[in-house]
């Protein structure tokens, strides 16, 4: 199997070259998905709190706002997961230990961790949305 990270150079290029934030060689992909979850979590609290304090007492409308934000965040997380697979060579289940001290080995590890964090963040966002659909009022 050929990985994007097999291409050289990946991180350093000619003068003026600026690597993308989410690309092989960069670690930011690992925190991106949990950050989306955190943003969704905070935004959900703000939406529910403002709605209940100013408009309330029904949660019918804010639950759909929270669900809409969840759809956007999950879509971004799915995109991140595809990047983790395509750009980093991440796989869900590792059948062979990553012992190689190389850029490719590190990318593969980052891709694997990112993929797991994407799944975890998606589940966490679902857990944030569920209470809004169980409770009908503030």
């Amino acid at each position: 199997m050929r990985y994007e990270s097999d291409k050289q150079p990946s991180r350093f290029g000619p003068p003026g070259y600026a690597p993308r934030v989410i690309d092989q060689g960069s670690v930011w992909i690992m925190v991106a998905a949990p950050t989306l979850w955190a943003l969704h979590f905070v935004a959900s609290y703000v939406v529910a709190a403002v709605w209940c304090a100013r408009i309330g007492p029904s949660l019918t409308e804010p639950r759909w706002i929270i669900a809409g934000m969840a759809v956007v965040c999950v879509a971004l997380i799915v995109w991140l997961a595809t990047q983790a697979v395509r750009r980093y060579g991440g796989v869900f289940v590792i059948f062979e230990e990553i012992t190689e001290s190389s850029e490719r080995g590190r990318d593969k590890f980052i891709g694997h961790v990112s993929l797991l964090l994407c799944i975890l963040s998606g589940v966490a966002i679902a857990f944030t949305v569920i209470p809004g659909f169980v409770f009908g009022s503030c």
């Binding site: 589940v123 679902a126 857990f127 569920i130 209470p131 169980v134 409770f135 009908g136």
Partner: peptide
Amino acid sequence: PTVLVCALLIWGLVILR
């Protein structure tokens, strides 16, 4: 575990409601 925790979350929320 994810499925079980999700089911317990919903069950607990329904009781609370």
